[in-house]
Amino acid sequence: MIELEKTHVVNNEILAIISARSGSKGIKNKNIRMLAGKPLLAHSIEYVHEKKEQNL
């Protein structure tokens, strides 16, 4: 499960901030590396969209 760094409610809309830095020591550029046909960061974004539709 992905932990969101911050969530805010503004005008009844949920704003999520996903931290994604490229300076990983273990795996270089891991957020843009492909996993199951799409970048790792795309999985995080899709997760947030799914939770938005479920009204977090």
Rank of each mutant, 00 (worst) to 15 (best):
G37S: 09
H8P: 00
I18M: 02
K6D: 10
M1L: 01
V10N: 02
N55F: 01
V9M: 11
R33Q: 13
N55G: 13
K28A: 03
H43M: 02
P39F: 01
E3D: 11
K25W: 11
M34Y: 03
E46L: 14
N11V: 03
S44R: 08
Y47D: 14
L56M: 13
K52C: 10
I14V: 11
I14Q: 15
K30N: 12
I18G: 01
H49Q: 07
E5V: 12
E5Y: 13
S24P: 03
I32V: 09
N31M: 13
I27C: 00
G23V: 07
N29A: 06
I27N: 03
G37Q: 14
A20R: 07
I17W: 11
G26F: 05
H8G: 00
L4H: 00
V48S: 14
K25G: 08
L15H: 04
E50N: 10
S24Y: 12
K38L: 10
S44Y: 08
E3A: 05
I14G: 01
G37M: 08
K30A: 04
Q54R: 14
E5I: 03
M1Q: 04
K25V: 08
I27A: 00
S44T: 03
V9W: 11
A36P: 01
N12T: 01
N31I: 12
I17F: 15
I27F: 12
N31P: 01
T7F: 07
N12A: 03
L35T: 12
R21D: 14
V10E: 06
G23C: 08
L41W: 03
N29C: 04
K6H: 09
I32N: 08
K52H: 07
N55M: 02
K30F: 15
T7V: 08
H49V: 09
E13D: 03
K28N: 09
Y47F: 11
I45A: 04
G37W: 10
H8T: 01
K6Q: 13
H8D: 06
N29H: 11
M34D: 11
H49L: 02
N11E: 12
L35I: 12
L35R: 14
